[in-house]
Amino acid sequence: MDTSAPVRILTVCTGNICRSPVAERLLQAGLDQVVLGGFQVTSAGTRAMVGYPMQPISANIVRTFGGDPEGFLARQLTPQILRGVDLVLTMTSGHRGEVLQLDASLLKRTFTIREFARMLDVLDGQASASGGQVPVIPAAKGTDDNDSLAATAAFWKSLPARAAGVRHLALPPDAADNDIIDPYRRSAEVYRQMEDELAPAIVSILRHARLNAPVRGSRAGSL
């Protein structure tokens, strides 16, 4: 495991101009606040409108939640993009299947973003019920930025396995609840529905990141 490298997260939708760019930019903005330099969030589309910018309403959503939509250009999902990714978060179950067609080795690291968020909610609930955060990322006494990055990488690269372990406790009432609606060429109301489905998942992921941020200071090793 290369603990000097940032945790690589890829978000995936169809055209890579509506849903996955919102997830990319908001996850990156939020995770940067947890461990600056600890994460690299990118996105791609299974049938991408290559070179197109983010759709204007999606860009406005990103700005509303404190992200930066500038400079985004859609790109096509390829095996090369998937190589070395630590976590793939897709917008639908169909996208998950397409990712696995390109790289079956990602089976245990690929989830829809909504199901992954529910799994993290279960893990956080279990930690709360046990009276603490389980597990907490320890950082060495006198830790520096490199220690924090290494601790973050170790934690997040093992997180998919822990999340999958509680999948049975995070099943939705309807399988459609795993998916984020596609608003492309649809009304502003459908974009609002996309936002309503996507935003809580992003919040859950960022909450888990904050709860399990590296512990600094002399007592870190004993927590």
Rank of each mutant, 00 (worst) to 15 (best):
L31I: 02
D32F: 07
D32Y: 04
D32L: 04
D32I: 01
V34Q: 03
V34D: 05
V35P: 06
V35D: 07
V35A: 09
L36S: 13
G37K: 10
F39Q: 03
Q40I: 06
V41H: 04
V41K: 09
V41R: 05
V41D: 02
T42F: 14
S43I: 09
T46L: 07
T46A: 03
R47F: 13
R47Q: 14
A48S: 13
V50W: 02
V50K: 09
G51V: 06
G51I: 05
Y52N: 15
P53R: 12
P53V: 01
P53Y: 10
P53C: 03
M54I: 15
Q55D: 15
Q55P: 10
P56T: 02
I57M: 06
A59P: 04
N60A: 13
V62T: 12
R63S: 10
R63D: 07
R63H: 08
T64L: 12
F65E: 07
F65P: 07
F65A: 07
G66Y: 09
G66K: 08
D68C: 07
D68W: 03
D68H: 06
E70V: 15
G71C: 08
L73G: 04
L73Q: 14
A74W: 03
A74N: 06
A74I: 10
R75I: 02
R75D: 01
Q76A: 01
T78W: 00
T78E: 01
P79L: 05
P79H: 02
P79N: 04
Q80K: 13
Q80L: 11
Q80T: 12
I81C: 00
L82C: 01
L82V: 00
L82M: 00
G84A: 08
G84Y: 11
V85L: 02
D86T: 11
L87E: 02
V88S: 00
T90H: 05
M91I: 03
M91G: 05
T92H: 01
S93Y: 05
G94I: 06
H95T: 08
H95Y: 08
H95V: 06
R96H: 10
G97C: 07
E98R: 12
E98I: 11
V99E: 01
L100K: 08
Q101R: 14
Q101A: 14
Q101K: 13
L102N: 08
D103L: 02
D103H: 03
D103T: 02
A104P: 10
A104C: 04
S105F: 02
L106K: 02
L106R: 02
L107P: 00
L107I: 09
K108G: 05
K108F: 10
K108N: 10
R109F: 06
R109E: 08
R109N: 12
T110K: 04
E115G: 04
E115A: 11
E115S: 13
F116Y: 14
F116V: 09
R118K: 14
M119Q: 15
L120R: 03
L120D: 02
L120H: 04
D121L: 10
V122T: 05
V122P: 02
V122Y: 00
L123Y: 04
L123A: 03
L123S: 01
D124C: 09
D124R: 15
G125K: 12
G125E: 13
G125D: 13
Q126W: 15
S128A: 15
S130L: 15
S130Y: 14
G131M: 09
G131W: 07
G132S: 05
G132N: 03
V134R: 12
P135S: 03
P135I: 03
V136A: 11
I137M: 11
P138R: 08
